[in-house]
Write a protein that binds this DNA or RNA. Sequence first.
DNA 1: GCAAAAGTGTTCTGTCTACACCCATGT
DNA 2: ACATGGGTGTAGACAGAACACTTTTGC
Lengths: 227, 227
Amino acid sequence: MSEGFLPPVEDRPAVTVDVVIFSLVEDDLKVLLVQRDRQPFLGQWGIPGGFVYRHEALESAAARKLDDETGVKNVYLEQLYTFGSPNRDPRSRVITVAYFALLPYAAIRELDEARASWFPLNALPPLAFDHEEIVQYALTRLRYKLEYTTVGFRLLPDLFTLSELQKAYEIILDERLDKRNFRRKILAAEILQETGQMKRDGEGRPAKLYGYRDDAITEIKTRRLFP
Amino acid sequence: MSEGFLPPVEDRPAVTVDVVIFSLVEDDLKVLLVQRDRQPFLGQWGIPGGFVYRHEALESAAARKLDDETGVKNVYLEQLYTFGSPNRDPRSRVITVAYFALLPYAAIRELDEARASWFPLNALPPLAFDHEEIVQYALTRLRYKLEYTTVGFRLLPDLFTLSELQKAYEIILDERLDKRNFRRKILAAEILQETGQMKRDGEGRPAKLYGYRDDAITEIKTRRLFP
DNA sequence: GCAAAAGTGTTCTGTCTACACCCATGT
DNA sequence: ACATGGGTGTAGACAGAACACTTTTGC
């Protein structure tokens, strides 16, 4: 049977949520890290996280942390994995439910630049706890998701051009994609809608601005987008 | 920063592991349930689970539960999802890290038949807590895994014929598969090895017995096995 | 010799890949 | 008029799906 009796409180682990926050910053995929202001690992960088409140759902706790750090709500947030090695926190038993989040850089409203900073994935500083492992796990999952689903949009602002979307995919997957094939597949997935608006800023021909259809954000059941 | 301070013990949730144990029983995919001998949900069925010991890894706790119920070690065990709605346990805050396991029915050494019983997935009794949701989540994941990876073997004994394997896939996916295409794809995945032995029991031509290559049990990176 | 299950190839179809040029705008 | 990025179609390769007969054994 499950949960047959409650263990004494002193045997209970502490439970945290940690959030790997990805965004595209200056044409690079970056992760938001915060510098610890307490022991253990004082002064080291880590991913944002904290304890789950007593009556709070796990995903709410993750969303709260995300809001705390960036001031952004309604971002893509997905449970990643639960890490619970007995000694991952030197103080005591701490189990962390890790999430990963995708957010458009432009949506960030408040960022305490004294504490928080964006790091590219190939130049991470030494991280506290097992956060290095968590970040790598999140990156693997993100790439996988990008191949099979359409979450890539969630890194872009509400309106975007197909070229911007392709560039995002190329940055994250770290490979060049064919323009015509990319456009055909993305449009075939029927998750975008033309807005009728055009983007005309730099040189060149103006580009159609697309938005994503709210009803189609979820998983793609068909085949891989980028095999 | 993550895990900045430890919360007082009285604010800590209890943490359990629950394991959805799948096996093929009498040509059907079934789940092992146990009848609760305590409140809450006294007398109702649920998936096996229990509290995580103080210095125990999560996966070890899941493996321990599995061993407790079935006497089987070294089975396929994968973390599924962590369920933590604030009121999922009526007594207090309990967060559960759910796992799913695949095991060959023949491997079961000890099963307390007064408490534990196998149920087919389309005829589950009312389940305790949110276990119904957990089981459905596990079934979705199992089918998904079967399409993309090769975990299907883990439901069969060490040696098996291709027909037996195909039948297992058909039962779980609940659709008929073409014999020639199935064999070609499974063999192309290079996860099986012929053992040289033959199975000769009932009528008909004897079948080659295959085993799985230990080095190839993990994920398949290529494309779907059964699109 | 027949019932029962194992084993085996080929054709067709649809999807993915590779690839090059014209279009609309700003300067 | 030219530089810049946006936008479009097609042929060949490849993988998946559909499909029927022969082989080996037990009775």
